[in-house]
Simulated scan of single mutants.
Amino acid sequence: MTHSEGHDSAPSPTTLPLFPLHTVALPGVHLPLHIFEPRYRQLTVDLVTEVVPDRSFGVVAITNPSVGEVERTEHVHATGCAVTLREARRLPDGRFDIIGTGHRRFRLLDIDTASAPYLCGTVEWVDDEPLPDGADEAAARLSDICRAAHRRYCTVAWESDGWRSPPGDLGYDALAYRLASDCILPLPDRQELLEERHPLRRLRLTYRLLAREAAFVSELSAVPAPHHDVDEALSRPSLN
């Protein structure tokens, strides 16, 4: 059984279907995928029909672009993110376009290549370190600073109506992921965000990344795909 980010750690390891990718899934962030490989088409069918409990699968980032076939734990980063299937659209040729949402981090302990048509992993859940007493004020200040950096980034990266600020009541533990998801970040940066278990350090890292990316975008005019396009896609009819 899966849990949302921030719950008490599971008492023992659990098993998740694995989807190795050349990207990093983040908690609370939508992940659109185009499914074409036969074994992951089967995984999608198993998710839609809830053969897989909770429609949940694990995304792990491949460590090296030269890896052709993931078979061992050293082929992927040890920390991944469980993703819940939100929408699935079957295409005429049997491929799928899906959208999932990251919901909880895990540490990959082992990979099983034989029990299912797709990879499965033995994982243990990884949650944030608790903040010390009296840290809420610092967290609130950092949240405000990061939101301001996000606005500056989006102002130079997007058209005036092409972005949205995260909800004001979004918790500081999840805020860093949402703000960072609006940037086109190299895989190592996204992986570092995923692995950072201290909410305040994660906010500081997000601020540095937003400031850096704003400078890059100003010079290169590199514009990311608006995150709200995925939100709108979620409102369309699906197989669910």
Rank of each mutant, 00 (worst) to 15 (best):
68 G>Y: 06
204 R>Y: 04
49 T>I: 01
217 V>H: 09
32 P>F: 10
238 S>R: 11
195 E>W: 02
51 V>S: 13
102 G>H: 01
96 F>H: 03
25 A>D: 00
126 V>S: 14
10 A>W: 05
131 L>P: 15
21 L>C: 09
14 T>Y: 12
205 L>C: 04
122 T>V: 12
238 S>N: 11
186 P>C: 08
195 E>Y: 05
30 H>I: 04
140 A>M: 06
128 D>E: 12
100 G>I: 03
240 N>I: 02
222 A>G: 13
133 D>P: 15
97 D>M: 10
215 A>Q: 07
80 G>L: 04
83 V>P: 00
70 V>M: 08
102 G>F: 00
44 T>L: 05
69 E>W: 07
219 E>Q: 13
125 W>H: 11
108 L>C: 09
40 Y>L: 01
74 E>T: 06
72 R>M: 05
239 L>Y: 06
130 P>I: 02
77 H>A: 11
56 S>I: 00
74 E>K: 09
51 V>A: 07
65 P>M: 00
122 T>K: 07
86 R>A: 03
4 S>D: 15
192 E>G: 05
110 D>R: 04
33 L>R: 08
152 R>C: 15
12 S>D: 11
144 D>M: 15
139 A>R: 15
47 L>R: 05
127 D>E: 13
77 H>L: 01
15 T>M: 11
222 A>T: 02
73 T>S: 09
122 T>P: 13
138 A>L: 08
222 A>S: 10
225 A>H: 09
156 V>E: 05
218 S>Q: 09
134 G>S: 10
186 P>S: 11
23 T>Y: 07
136 D>P: 13
189 D>C: 14
136 D>A: 15
146 C>Y: 04
184 I>F: 11
156 V>F: 04
68 G>H: 08
46 D>Y: 00
172 Y>I: 02
42 Q>T: 10
